[in-house]
Design a binder for these strands. Structure first.
Lengths: 183, 183
DNA sequence: GTCTATAGGGCGATAGAC
DNA sequence: GTCTATCGCCCTATAGAC
């Protein structure tokens, strides 16, 4: 790993730029400059911007899913795993690196990218539904609460960015966890 | 109103295009084509794209706030107003015309646009906090639940777009409203 | 596999006639 | 106030040498 390949450096750079400015506003030229490889290399490994985007977003999804599953699949009691996931520290003002991409119409219009985004959320919803079911809730209620829990995180990011206040995300989580406790 | 001014037609067209593709990907040329006015007119009324964006996003915020306040400020009981707001029919796959813009870094980096977005959410959070306070909750808890309620809507939009399933938004709302009822 | 050079087009913005 | 014409820039992608 002391000598990462040109391909890996391109994906790393693309992930970083996508996280900050999204896919559309990130030009292949910018990825190229940030990665330090030459222009020919980029188009050798990734013939089109689409190919680069699928690889980079796919890598980000894999990383975020792996981290989430560590928390959601620990050996703590179900409720504890849920609260641990909800309260995990997050860079609220940066937004969710995957969720933010749903705002880009060009991303949703790209079959490959859309599938990667969908897989990320379907996977998380599945894990959260399982947790709620473990607490004794019927399937349909567990599924609704899983949607609510994930919406709290994604919506909390939106509120934090809009108000430029990271506390907006933690407030949303507190409000939701408070409701869970009293029910 | 049978003869809308060039300025009004430009703002209308910009609002429509921003709703579909966001601010960044919408070129002044596209607004111009959609509005039917000439190029000189656009740059006469709005010297830069920034000026056009502030006017169009401001108009959208005004319209959405007016509609929201009608529901949130009706003469129904507090809880009913809240549930009415949460369950109002929404075009889930289109996303929130204001919330989606928080994903665009260029929008948040623009002082004028950022202020308009912030004002929208601050206003909604204030109204929702008031409602929760009316139900007898202490101020800090009311504020947290207001954040949670608004995050459910914004996050529900994100889930619906990511999974291409409008039911994801209604499921999140159902999950949240269910928790409110049992607490 | 990687490089430099460049094509072809859309971008935001301006010029200047009417 | 509105029009047409055009500038200079950056975009995605390709060509072709090494």
């Amino acid at each position: 790993m002391s000598t990462p390949t040109a391909r890996d450096r391109l994906i790393d750079a693309a992930q970083d730029l996508f996280a900050v400015q999204g896919v559309g506003p990130t030009s292949p030229r910018a990825v190229l400059a940030a990665s330090g490889v030459g222009q020919g290399s980029l188009y050798h490994h990734f013939p089109t911007k689409h190919d680069l985007a699928v690889a980079a977003v796919g890598a980000t999804v894999d990383q975020l899913l792996a981290r989430a599953m560590t928390t959601l699949g620990s050996d703590s009691p179900a409720i504890q795993r849920l609260v641990d996931y909800l309260e995990r520290p997050r860079d609220a003002l940066a937004g969710c690196r995957v969720g933010r991409l749903t705002a880009e119409q060009a991303v949703l219009d790209d079959d490959g990218l859309r599938d990667v985004l969908a897989a990320y959320f379907v996977r998380l919803l599945g894990a959260l539904t399982t947790i709620f079911r473990e607490t004794g809730l019927p399937d349909d209620v567990a599924r609704d609460r899983a949607h609510a829990a994930l919406a709290i995180i994604q919506g909390g990011y939106v509120l934090a960015r809009a108000t430029q206040d990271p506390e907006a995300l933690t407030a949303a989580v507190r409000g939701f966890v408070g409701l869970l406790s009293t029910s």
